[in-house]
């Protein structure tokens, strides 16, 4: 038995299309998850005790259940409550919600890392709560939340592979289909692994670049 990558590589255009869907869902999902997570963390911190309590429930449920179970519930269970989504929309929404729960915790830790005195100083010169969050707290926590945020982005990239199970035409589904058509199952999996790994390394590189830019002011 010998490996034959040629049959996989001959399908490069299809693989690239799948890669495109993967990158689209990953980048859009991660950005939306980070924004939603930040809003949740902000609401939990400044929205009063009730908002904190109410929002803690979805965050705990999402962090406490497998991603696969969540997307099955969303895609196959959604229609029972009138939520009919095509696979890509369901995948993007699922990834956003899943990621947001983790980003909410990352930003919660971020808020805690900013010394209260720095916000008090902002209050005393008359900045509004929103201005303090945007111009003081968010930039101050940036360096601290960047590594866990990039780590989360990498995890989300790898979770997108599960979206093949709700028929999202992303890379895993595409490559697996090619593999079974061509009777080159193992080869297809190896190619898949390499592409994911390359994407992860690219993300890590960008993360380190951002870290270096942000650390100009720290002694």
């Amino acid at each position: 038995m010998s490996f034959d990558f040629a049959v996989i590589l001959a399908k490069a255009p299809q693989i690239l299309a799948g890669l495109g869907v993967t990158i689209l869902i990953w980048v859009a999902g991660t950005l939306l998850a980070a924004i939603l997570g930040f809003l949740v963390a902000t609401a939990r911190r400044y929205g009063g005790r009730l908002a904190d309590l109410v929002l803690s429930v979805p965050v705990e449920v999402i962090r406490g259940t497998p991603f696969l179970v969540q997307i099955f519930l969303l895609y196959f269970g959604g229609p029972y409550i009138g939520l009919r989504l095509d696979p890509i929309a369901a995948g993007l929404l699922g990834l956003t919600i899943y990621g947001a729960a983790y980003y909410a915790e990352i930003f919660r830790a971020g808020f805690q890392s900013v010394p209260p005195g720095h916000s008090e100083a902002a209050d005393c010169v008359g900045l509004t709560r929103m201005q303090t969050i945007l111009h003081v707290q968010l930039p101050e926590m940036a360096l601290l939340v960047l590594p866990p945020s990039m780590n989360m982005a990498v995890i989300l990239l790898k979770e997108t592979a599960l979206l093949s199970l709700i028929t999202v035409p992303e890379m895993t589904m595409t490559v697996q289909a090619i593999g079974s058509q061509q009777y080159a199952f193992v080869e297809s999996i190896v190619v898949l692994a390499l592409v994911y790994w390359a994407l992860v390394e690219l993300a890590n590189f960008l993360g380190r670049l951002a870290e270096r830019r942000l650390s100009t002011y720290s002694a």
Partner: peptide
């Protein structure tokens, strides 16, 4: 205007 013991300048 308020001045704090720990300065509380914004480090960024």
């Amino acid at each position: 205007g308020m001045v704090f013991q720990q300065f509380n300048l914004w480090p960024h």
